[in-house]
Amino acid sequence: MSRHQSPLPRLALLAAGLFGASLLDASPAFADLRMCNTSGSRVGVAIGYRDAQGWTTEGWWNIGPRACETLLRGTLAARFYYVHAVDYDRGGEWTGKSVMCTRNKEFTIRGIEDCLARGYDRAGFFEVDTGEQKSWTIQLTDTTGSAPARP
Rank of each mutant, 00 (worst) to 15 (best):
Met1Trp: 05
Ser2Trp: 13
Pro9Ile: 09
Pro9Gly: 04
Ala12Asp: 11
Ala12Ile: 15
Leu13Ser: 15
Leu13Tyr: 07
Leu14Gln: 11
Ala16Trp: 01
Ala16Asn: 12
Gly17Glu: 13
Gly17Lys: 11
Phe19Ile: 15
Ala21Asn: 11
Ala21Ser: 08
Leu23Phe: 10
Leu23Asp: 15
Leu23Lys: 13
Ala26Gln: 14
Ser27Lys: 06
Ala29Met: 04
Ala31Leu: 08
Asp32Gly: 11
Leu33His: 07
Leu33Phe: 03
Thr38Cys: 10
Thr38Phe: 13
Thr38Trp: 15
Ser39Pro: 00
Ser39Ile: 04
Arg42Tyr: 08
Val45Leu: 01
Ala46Leu: 01
Ala46Pro: 12
Ile47Pro: 09
Ile47His: 00
Tyr49Val: 01
Tyr49His: 03
Arg50Thr: 12
Arg50Ala: 09
Asp51Gly: 11
Asp51Ala: 09
Ala52Leu: 02
Ala52Cys: 02
Gln53Met: 06
Gly54Thr: 12
Trp55Gly: 06
Thr57Met: 01
Glu58Met: 12
Gly59Ile: 00
Trp61Ala: 00
Trp61His: 00
Trp61Phe: 03
Asn62His: 12
Ala67Trp: 00
Glu69Thr: 06
Glu69Val: 03
Glu69Tyr: 02
Leu72Lys: 14
Arg73Tyr: 13
Gly74Met: 05
Ala77Cys: 05
Ala78Arg: 07
Arg79Cys: 09
Phe80Gln: 06
Phe80Asp: 11
Phe80Leu: 14
Phe80Thr: 00
Tyr81Arg: 02
Tyr82Trp: 12
Tyr82Arg: 11
Val83His: 15
His84Asp: 06
Ala85Glu: 07
Asp87Thr: 11
Asp89Trp: 01
Asp89Asn: 14
Gly91Cys: 05
Gly91Leu: 10
Gly92Pro: 02
Trp94Ser: 03
Trp94Pro: 11
Trp94Phe: 04
Thr95Tyr: 12
Thr95Ile: 02
Gly96Arg: 10
Gly96Glu: 00
Gly96Trp: 03
Ser98Arg: 07
Val99Pro: 06
Met100Trp: 09
Met100Tyr: 14
Thr102Arg: 02
Asn104Leu: 14
Glu106Asn: 15
Glu106Val: 13
Ile109Trp: 10
Gly111Asp: 05
Ile112Val: 09
Glu113Lys: 07
Leu116Lys: 08
Leu116His: 01
Ala117Glu: 15
Ala117Lys: 12
Gly119Gln: 01
Gly119Cys: 06
Tyr120Val: 02
Tyr120Arg: 02
Tyr120Met: 04
Asp121Gly: 03
Arg122Ala: 10
Arg122Lys: 14
Ala123Gly: 07
Ala123Trp: 03
Ala123Val: 13
Ala123Leu: 06
Glu127Cys: 03
Asp129Tyr: 09
Gly131Asp: 10
Glu132Arg: 05
Lys134Met: 01
Lys134Thr: 13
Trp136Arg: 09
Ile138Pro: 08
Leu140Glu: 02
Leu140Asp: 07
Gly145Lys: 10
Ser146Asp: 13
Pro151His: 13
